[in-house]
Design a protein around this nucleic acid. Structure first.
Lengths: 341, 341
DNA sequence: TTGTATGCGTTATCAC
DNA sequence: GTGATAACGCATACAA
């Protein structure tokens, strides 16, 4: 019950604490005999080293802090899965924090992670982060930092992202090549960097194929419930324009697409005959809805993996007092073509 | 860059380290004047206490360890969300570990958490955990432990679960009352405690309503891909029995239900007219598929919340050297009735 | 009100 | 090959 320490082992074996420590860590300058005795006793007494003490002494914690906007999100839970698996494989533990898209929380959490002496931080910004003092504080302290998915050009650190603009461009180009001519856009607030880039990709594809950009078929949702919005704006599209005029819909998230799909389905509007739908993210559900949804595959798990790998590399570099080199990693996306287009 | 410590502050202000410490912690026995000076300097220098040192001194880390079988799972990511939010509100951080349903990993992770000196552990067992030495080790060390969802009667600790049997009983009773008479069962391996209990609930409902239990309409899947299995066994049900004979299907997970639904949809078998479907868990997707799926609502977020609350209470009790009282908390489920029944 | 002294459990340096 | 000793940064009992 009362924790057993190096001292206890030392006392029991009548040797010094330092010898015990060395024996347990496999130092070469300990005789096989004592080493064996120590290990055996440690085993017998179920000795478990106090990492906190070790951390204090060695000045590193083998722990990284991860801030995620929202865990319950197919994409982010995938990212987290990737992060945790790779971290674990490299002997690092993960402290997970959820900002819930609140700036104040993000600030507080950064401070907590600094106090915890984490060896590095992995973060995705909230949609409302416009000031960066807290993040700069991480950097002035020399704590390695990597941002993923929602990043900012205001911070000079390594970043792991997808090319939203290109991905949207690819999706819309695909629709155009497939023969669709009046492609509506449904997006969330364009202040969000990602959504804005997807909008840019949409526009670029149109212009590339000499299709006139028409503001009247560009819809920006006003609330946060993407599924609801999908249904609502699908209805709006139909009422604003005779359905023969809009023949395809590109949405910035799968959830909106599925919402729209639900509306069309229950109103006898055929997908993709009457209107095609293209989503974004490749959430699991997009493969199982009817009709299954064409979408942009956004590989969350891989993004998580790459992010930690980068962070771990920077941590190692810092330990060796070497210069770290800032990277910008773009995870390739792909089109997942299904029944809705 | 070089971390600043209490010593630095003390030196700067020409006072002792202990006074600085007390000032920062708001001890009553420090004059307002020095307190103010200390706080101001700390602010100015951006002082951030080294929690690791504090942890070593105080013998607690304000950290809890959480082991989850699989993060990328709507249910579990909800649980984690609940855990993290409540933990944070109480000043605790969460170290998240994923066992990936591997027993060896679970063992290793328990050891890691012990070494990390976490104040408590929250865990859900892998499907393959049949030995419990590692968990007993947690208890002999006096580390508060709470199990959630996948629990074992072999460990005497507080548990937070749902009543699987009752929930299944409710669902099947509902189907019977609605007039369905030949209700098939589709489940995963019955060695999994939860699935087995759901099966028991199914049987009990039948017997309660004097419907003869018929083994020929009980299907146990053989692989792990629930969605695939849903489709596969839906087909099997149709081919084994003329469709007029089975008029409803109860599955132990939403994913199987959705798979089955997909098969019926694409084979002109009408839901619920030809066959009704009832799922289990209330994953988000069940509300958006067509037809939307009736299911058992299994409140993950709440389970997460209750679990930490219990754990935190036990941690507090332990700190005050009071007896902890083992609890068994059953989170109520409910039926979510939708279009599929 | 302030300061002194000590310890939390490890690791690492240096002497023996 | 082994051990004494100091240090990591903070918290607290006790003395002043």
């Amino acid at each position: 019950m009362s924790r057993i320490t190096l001292q206890d082992l030392a006392y029991e074996l009548n040797i010094s604490v330092s010898t015990v420590s060395k024996a347990l860590k496999g130092y070469p300058d300990v005789s096989e005999k004592t080493k064996k005795a120590v290990v055996e006793l440690a085993d017998k007494l179920n000795f478990s080293p106090n990492i906190v003490a070790s951390n204090l002494r060695t000045q590193h914690t083998k722990t990284i802090g991860v801030i995620v906007p929202e865990i319950v999100h197919h994409f982010f839970s995938n990212v987290i899965g990737g992060i945790i698996n790779i971290a674990e494989q490299n002997g690092y533990m993960v402290i997970l924090l959820q900002s819930n898209e609140k700036f104040e929380l993000e600030q507080k959490q950064i401070n907590l992670l600094i106090q915890q002496q984490v060896d590095g931080i992995l973060m995705s910004l909230t949609a409302h982060t416009t000031s960066f003092e807290h993040i700069k504080r991480v950097q002035t302290r020399g704590i390695p930092l990597v941002m993923y998915d929602k990043v900012s050009k205001n911070i000079n650190c390594s970043k792991v992202i997808i090319d939203d603009k290109q991905a949207a461009y690819d999706a819309v180009s695909y629709l155009i090549r497939k023969g669709y001519k009046r492609i509506a856009f449904l997006g969330g607030s364009l202040t969000a960097q990602n959504f804005n880039n997807r909008f840019l990709g949409y526009k670029e594809a149109l212009s590339e194929f000499r299709i006139k950009y028409d503001e009247s078929i560009v819809y920006i949702t006003d609330s946060d419930d993407e599924y609801e919005n999908g249904m609502k704006y699908a209805e709006k599209i139909v009422s604003d324009h005779s359905k023969s005029k809009v023949d395809a819909l590109f949405t910035v998230t799968d959830l909106m697409a599925v919402g729209a799909s639900k509306y069309f389905n229950s109103n006898e509007i055929k997908i993709p005959e009457d209107i095609a739908i293209f989503g974004f993210s490749n959430w699991f559900m997009s493969s199982i809805v009817t009709p299954s949804l064409s979408t942009v595959n956004q590989p969350g798990y891989e993004m998580g993996e790459k992010s930690v790998e980068l962070l771990l590399k920077e941590i190692a570099l810092k330990k060796e007092r070497q210069q770290i080199e800032i990277q910008r990693l773009v995870i390739p996306t792909s089109l997942e073509i299904r029944e809705s287009t």
